[in-house]
Every structure is written in structure tokens, then in C-alpha cells.
């Protein structure tokens, strides 16, 4: 085996570029609640593995998968099953 053990991950801030391709708002500042343990925190605080074969963002509390993003040649696949909600900061003028 030539490759060293690579157990490393980035923080969720690194999702800003890949998610920015899909959404008009910066989702890394959104607060997500983990479906596994209920921990809530910004997407930027998730532990991000990848990028290949895909991005896998895990909860810093329980290590369960919160978000997955695979970018294929003509499509992106986004899986948010591990997030109960995303609370996305918006301007107050559009509140109803």
C-alpha cells in the first residue's frame, strides 16, 4: 500500500462552490438539522468528504450523512435525506 491513511475531511465551507452551481443563495450559511441526532448548525460546520466519487457531508455530532452531492457530466444529484430542515437566511421584507 503506497497511499497514506487519509481520514481527513474539509469543513462544509467547501460546499459553497458546488452548491453555488445549483442555488441562488449561499447554502453554507443555512442552518441544517441532522436527521440522525437532531444537532443543528450551519452547513459550513459539516464534515465534508470527497470530492470523488461525490461530496459527502456528515454531521459533526454523530457522523451520519446529512448531504450528498454528485456532479455528473450533465446532471447533479443532491441528496438531503439526512437533513430534517434547512433554515435559509433571507431578507425580512418578503416575509408573509
Amino acid at each position: 500500500m503506497t497511499a497514506p491513511a487519509q481520514d481527513g475531511y474539509q469543513d462544509g465551507n467547501a460546499l459553497a462552490g458546488p452548491l453555488g452551481e445549483l442555488f441562488a443563495v449561499d447554502l453554507t450559511v443555512a442552518e441544517c438539522r441532522c436527521a440522525g441526532c437532531g444537532l443543528a448548525g450551519p452547513v459550513a460546520s459539516l464534515r465534508l468528504y470527497g470530492p470523488a466519487p461525490g461530496l459527502v457531508a456528515r454531521c459533526p455530532g454523530c457522523e451520519e450523512v446529512v448531504l450528498r452531492l454528485v456532479r455528473g457530466p450533465g446532471s447533479a444529484w443532491l441528496d438531503l435525506r439526512g437533513a430534517v430542515t434547512l433554515r435559509i437566511p433571507l431578507g425580512s421584507e418578503d416575509a408573509f
Binding site: 500500500m1 503506497t2 491513511a5 475531511y9 468528504y49 470527497g50 470523488a52 461525490g54
Partner: peptide, 9 residues
């Protein structure tokens, strides 16, 4: 080489 790809710990 033998690349290591990881989806988690």
C-alpha cells in the same frame, strides 16, 4: 499508486 477515496471516517 493506490488512491484512497473516502466518503466518511
Amino acid at each position: 499508486d493506490f488512491p484512497v477515496l473516502s466518503a466518511g471516517p
